[in-house]
Design a protein around this nucleic acid. Sequence first.
DNA 1: GTCATTTGACCCCC
DNA 2: GGGGGTCAAATGAC
Length: 298
Amino acid sequence: MENQIPNGKRAMEEELNRGRDMANQLLEVLAYDKSITHLQKEEEEGSNSVLPFVEDLVRKVLCSFTNTLLLLNSTNDVSHEVVASITLRDVSSSTTTSPKKLESVDEICKSRKILSTENRRRGYKRKSIAPSWEKDSSILVEDGYVWRKYGQKMTLNAKYLRSYYRCTHKNDQGCHAMKQVQRIQDVPPLYRTTYYGHHTCKSPMNPEIVLEPLSPSGSSTLLSFSNSFHCKQENPFPSSLLASTKHAHNQLSSLEDLLLHDCEVDCNYSRRVANSMLSSAESVEFENVFMSSLDFVG
DNA sequence: GTCATTTGACCCCC
DNA sequence: GGGGGTCAAATGAC
């Protein structure tokens, strides 16, 4: 049954995967080039570099590949909208305790607990949808969207934590796309990324593209991206990779964390990317962390 | 002050 | 009943 995918479709998938891989490689090259020319550019203030423009273009290409793959994996005969089961707790009996009336810290704590247990789950939703698609990869490919981590969990039959992400634009644009990242293999590192729902947001990396709804079809296709380029860690390098200093800092801390606790990643790649994101001083600081992490690894 | 991540707890669903 | 998905307070970074 699973082999009923038409050859044409499979060929398209392979071609799209290849294109996407190449776009990723190009992005990597750009990041490397950026790090090399970083100091030069500082001295050449006012020079009009085309790098940001090229980078933007590459991201758009990347988004196109991602979106096309998503669309390709959707089926025609299933309802577009993914309906998550929404279960609201009976709120009629809930009480609102005013902390102002409490006299002791203990009581405040207790009231917080009460508020937590009685009110915090009113909007509780549970995903009841089949994954849109999933892929296994030893690298963690940029998909052109910005994700926000909302939880992580150790699962029963897994050696590693599973991380839960939702689209950053869930609140401002009501985008319900989600993904899970589960490391499934140690050596070589292998990650399984499972996508749920679809992006209805206009990604900042790709403002022109709004994804059409994906079907929640159970016939998710396993996409194996060939790994002709080196390891890029998943969420610590989201699509906002080079977008802002703020993100760069966040990613640096994630990167440090990776280097210290998840040493299987390609350190050289991480090093280049991190350096490309940072100022000279920060790069020096990062190098210190990097070198000490190498010492730690031995 | 704002925003992202961490983390313990809640609770749906198998 | 327990696993796993989600929430939201706490915390940290900027």
